[in-house]
Design a protein around this nucleic acid. Structure first.
Lengths: 124, 124
DNA sequence: CTCAACTTGATAATCATTCTCATTTTAAAC
DNA sequence: GTTTAAAATGAGAATGATTATCAAGTTGAG
């Protein structure tokens, strides 16, 4: 991957926005300061960065993909009221890969847990 | 929900096809025997049945949604080679909801785990 | 049987994303 | 610093999945 100003902007903006934004959300954020980044470039760079393991695409949050600059293992929680996405520690489900491999005989390379419900703020 | 022949066909076809088909896959299956079921009706009924809790939409298997007639709690595994989706017992991750609620203070109403890797057949 | 609510098929519309391609930028080699 | 091939870009077209629209047909309680 060669350097490009636009890719730098995409990655920096994702790092600055810990809200696990969707591509569209990130696009609108970037537009404010860097209107020179096109939508095609944004999508292109999001997949490239994800392929390179520099960012992570969060599955399970359809209809549109969310992205996370934190590639350390962790799970996610999405509040069904405010829509915000929070990180959940892997502590909540230990050795799941091992257990699932034992139980099935499958070779598991990745897994993802998505919780849904109400965040603290929205419970009130 | 009133009765309709088409809805019956959709539900029966999903029950007969344990492969966790996508909407499009199910459409092509249904077309063979019941060409009178339109795509709009299929999509409409899939969401209605899912809203009613009669079937379940499996998230995390983008880009298109998969459906499951088994609404009992269980997880999923998708083989990255053959694309098949298998059920995984909830044994592999016990008390995750409780643990996550304790850790975060969020009210969790649902969660989903999707594993990816190679199924038994594809490991050879 | 009647009638309002529900459902349908056909198709248009929408949304998210990917693709195309001519132009521009990057960076390694000279 | 010039050359050059590979990489990256912007604009917009194209695609795929899904949802919306709406006139016409179906269902079921009274």
């Amino acid at each position: 991957m060669n350097y490009s100003k636009q890719r730098e902007v995409v990655l920096d903006s994702l790092k600055k926005n810990v809200i696990h934004p969707t591509a569209e959300k990130l696009y609108s954020i970037i537009q404010i300061e860097y209107p020179e980044v096109s939508k095609a470039t944004l999508y292109r760079n999001l997949s490239q960065l994800a392929d390179a393991g520099i960012i992570k695409k969060i599955d399970g949050l359809e209809p549109s993909a969310h992205f996370d600059h934190n590639t350390h293992p962790h799970y996610h929680f999405m509040c069904e009221k405010c829509g915000r996405v929070f990180d959940i520690s892997t502590d909540v489900a230990q050795n799941v890969t091992e257990k699932a491999e034992q139980e099935t005989g499958f070779k598991i390379t990745s897994h993802e847990i998505v919780f849904k419900g109400l965040c603290k703020d929205c419970q009130e």
